[in-house]
């Protein structure tokens, strides 16, 4: 399969996924009981004005047959027109352009930190004795079982309230980023370490590692040239999933550390039942996920062409 064919298939798959997500959202709006215009404007409790309801009807073509509404809905999405957030009274795309980069930076930093921590732990675990290995395994499991919203609180208690080293609120400085990034990274690092340790152990006891030692390479060289590559493959495989779990975690972390971003915007949109905003944010996060998946796929094709093809 050539690179071009691969890219075409990825693009096709991405479009299908986005279309399915959009369709699901369209059906979801239909399923809300009562007046759909009211639903879009925040449900029965929102007490939208007659004027606003009329505007929503016109915008979504609610007086037209369902099929026409569906096509209008898709047409607008295709033009990247997500409408206006009624709660914020601003175009949805403007809000997203503001919050999306912040969340992506947070997630990328956390991903990098989790990888670094996981590699470090996996390498350390190689040298550990039996008790050390058992302890490491326990720490990984607990780390992976810690919910973000609690870890964030504990980190604030320790490093902000008790020690006073770091700010509890994300104030825009580098120091303000440390706790949010750690909160996101630690549980993920627990997951990744589990994966890396297994594949590292397999690689280091494999025939090719023995062959490398028989060539005269030191243990460290075998670790660098062979072990790391094999350890990172399954973790790399999961990067799409990891990124997606980081976006989930970002919702909570942004709330705890009062940091503006996709998650916090989505939460307030959900609380206000601001459907245009929710639609836009959901589609965008799907798009981000698809992009990350394509990227990891490309990296994987570079590291392991045979494995990626199968």
């Amino acid at each position: 399969m050539g690179t071009l064919g691969w890219a075409a298939r990825k693009l096709g798959g991405a479009l299908v996924v986005l279309w399915l997500v959009a369709t699901a959202i369209f059906i979801g709006i239909r399923l809300i009981p009562g007046d759909p215009a009211e639903a879009i404007m925040g449900g029965p409790g929102s007490q939208a004005s007659a004027q606003a309801l009329a505007a929503a009807r016109a915008e979504f073509g609610l007086d037209q047959p369902a099929a026409v509404q569906y096509l209008m809905f898709l047409g607008k999405l295709a033009r990247l027109d997500f409408g206006t957030s009624y709660a914020l009274k601003r175009p949805v795309t403007d809000v997203m352009a503001e919050v999306l980069p912040k969340t992506i930076i947070l997630a990328l930093l956390a991903l990098a930190a989790a990888w670094a921590l996981a590699l470090l732990f996996a390498a350390l675990a190689m040298r550990a004795n039996r008790f050390g290995a058992w302890l490491g395994g326990m720490v990984e499991i607990v780390a992976a079982a810690v919910p973000h919203f609690w870890l964030g609180a504990v980190l604030i208690m320790v490093f902000s309230s008790a020690l006073g080293w770091l700010p509890a609120v994300d104030n825009g400085t580098a120091a303000g980023l440390v706790l949010p990034v750690l909160t996101l990274a630690l549980p993920l690092a627990g997951f990744l370490t589990q994966l890396m340790r297994d594949s590292l152990a397999t690689a280091m006891s494999s025939q090719f590692a023995l062959a490398a030692r028989a060539r005269g390479e030191s243990r460290l060289a075998v670790f660098w040239r062979h072990g790391l590559r094999h350890a990172s493959l399954p973790a790399l495989n999961l990067t799409g999933w990891a990124f997606s779990s980081l976006l989930s975690g970002a919702v909570v972390v942004e709330v705890i550390f009062a940091r503006p971003g996709l998650g916090r915007s989505l939460l307030s949109a959900v609380l206000a039942r601001d459907i245009p905003m929710v639609t836009g944010l959901a589609l965008f996060s799907a798009l981000v996920y698809i992009l990350v998946m394509a990227l990891t796929d490309a990296v994987q094709r570079a590291i392991d062409p045979a494995g990626a093809a199968s």
């Binding site: 997500v21 979801g28 997606s244 976006l247 919702v251 939460l267 944010l281 959901a282």
Partner: peptide
């Protein structure tokens, strides 16, 4: 398609409706 929306975001999306 379901998987492409992060779990918590999908949960929020469902609660929005």
């Amino acid at each position: 398609a379901l998987y492409s929306i992060p779990s918590l975001l999908l949960a929020l999306l469902i609660i929005a409706f």
